[in-house]
């Protein structure tokens, strides 16, 4: 019961952070909030018994992605432009989708239900928990599933990361170009200013 209470408090905290990210205009603050968000997420994963996920979320989610976002802000700009009107259509779409999803959750097995199909499947969860120590010999079941039973999945993941690294390098290059040398930029700046005046 205490466990569930801790999770509820942390999850409500996440909702507050998410609304902060929606409302704040300063992008730097939004990036810092998303870092806090990832760290809280890691705490929740620890309470939900997913210690490996918590490690990854703290290192990759709170660390690496915050650094990427800060780097992007350094290369672009920090302030978000004030939007003149609220987007009520977007609000309607989001509310409808959310209502449908909540309707969909009513059929789901409750949180912590050990008897649900996902947790009792004889060839997946139960197989891993009962046989992996004999078949693979690693005490951590998550590691043996990740590196052995689903090894090709992990190989695919590394391919994705490799492709993303190539993509980023080919888009940005290793040396930075000087932006001031571009004559087109002046025209675009003028165009933007004209739009702001209108």
């Amino acid at each position: 019961m205490t466990e569930q209470l801790v999770i509820m408090v942390l999850l409500s905290f996440l909702v507050v952070i998410a609304f902060g990210i929606i409302l704040l205009k300063d992008l730097l603050v939004a990036v810092i909030l998303s870092g806090i968000y990832s760290l809280t997420a890691a705490a929740i994963f620890v309470v939900m018994d997913a210690v490996d996920v918590a490690f990854t979320e703290a290192a990759v989610g709170a660390g690496v992605s915050t650094i990427f976002l800060l780097g992007a802000l350094t290369l672009t700009r920090r302030q978000q432009k004030q939007q003149k009107h609220n987007n009520y259509f977007a609000l309607l779409v989001v509310t409808l989708t959310g209502a449908l999803l909540i309707y969909g959750t009513l059929d789901l097995p409750g949180y912590g239900d050990g008897q649900s199909i996902a947790n009792q499947h004889p060839q997946l969860a139960q197989h891993f928990l009962q046989k992996s120590e004999d078949e693979i010999g690693i005490p951590n079941v998550v590691t043996s599933v990740l590196a052995s039973y689903r090894g090709y999945d992990t190989l695919g993941e590394t391919v994705v990361v490799f492709t993303a690294a190539i993509g980023v390098l080919s888009l940005l290059g290793l040396r930075r170009r000087k932006r001031e040398e571009d004559p087109e930029l002046d025209a675009k700046r003028q165009c933007r200013q004209q739009n702001e005046e209108v």
Partner: peptide, 27 residues
């Protein structure tokens, strides 16, 4: 259940890769 943990481990790393790609496009 260890299986969702494994799937999400993969998803976190892939998510950061997509984000890096998107940010490079924005720059």
């Amino acid at each position: 259940n260890p299986l969702p943990h494994v799937l999400i481990l993969t998803a976190i790393v892939v998510g950061v890769a997509t984000m890096a790609m998107g940010l490079a496009l924005i720059v």
